[in-house]
């Protein structure tokens, strides 16, 4: 015996649309379409809520930033002043140490020279130090080149001249120390 269900479905009751009135082959695509629409709407709502939340939080930050701005601007200006003042103080400290640094450089150069090598002049120009002097032998000039080449603060040492002076039985030399880059 065939059983009949005469009670209407909840969907039919809510929407007034009778699914049973639709052909069977339409019901599944219709359901898929409906689900797609609902899912799209749901996703849209979620994304809108996320955008709203981000903008609400941005507004709160903007209000706090506006309240903080005057104090922050004053603090930034004071920090800029301090940076300028520190530069000035550093420049003065650097200048106060410049004489001792110059003297130290000269002392290191003269201290590095072998005993049989003498200096007659030191000249500095843009970091390059030129030396002129006298040595008993050419070996003394070679030893001076070797010793000065080991000073860390210079990139290298060059021989600029060397000539023997028969009258005094010595060698007059010229050397140049190039500044380290």
């Amino acid at each position: 015996m065939k059983r009949m269900n005469y009670a209407g479905s909840a969907f039919e009751h809510l929407t007034g649309i009778s699914l049973t009135a639709l052909p069977l082959n339409v019901r599944l695509p219709l359901a898929a379409f409906g689900i797609t629409m609902v899912a799209t709407g749901f996703c849209w709502g979620v994304e809108e809520a996320r955008i709203d939340a981000a903008l609400r939080s941005a507004e709160a930050y903007a209000a706090r930033a506006a309240a903080l701005d005057p104090a922050a601007d004053r603090a930034r200006a004071a920090a800029a002043d301090v940076a300028r003042l520190r530069t000035v103080a550093r420049t003065i400290r650097d200048a106060e140490g410049s004489g001792a640094r110059s003297a130290g450089r000269i002392a290191r150069i003269t201290g590095a020279l072998p005993d049989d090598v003498w200096l007659s002049a030191i000249r500095t120009d843009k970091g390059t130090v030129s030396l002129e002097g006298r040595a008993l032998h050419l070996e003394g000039v070679a030893n001076a080149l070797d010793a000065l080449g080991r000073l860390d603060e210079y990139a290298g040492v060059r021989l600029t001249s060397a000539r023997s002076e028969a009258r005094r039985a010595s060698v007059i030399y010229g050397l140049a120390l190039d500044p380290a880059r």
Partner: peptide, 15 residues
């Protein structure tokens, strides 16, 4: 260079 007036001192020649 360390006097009452700060000064930058550079040696140019010593002869």
């Amino acid at each position: 260079s360390r006097g009452a007036v700060p000064a930058r001192v550079e040696l140019e020649t010593l002869a």
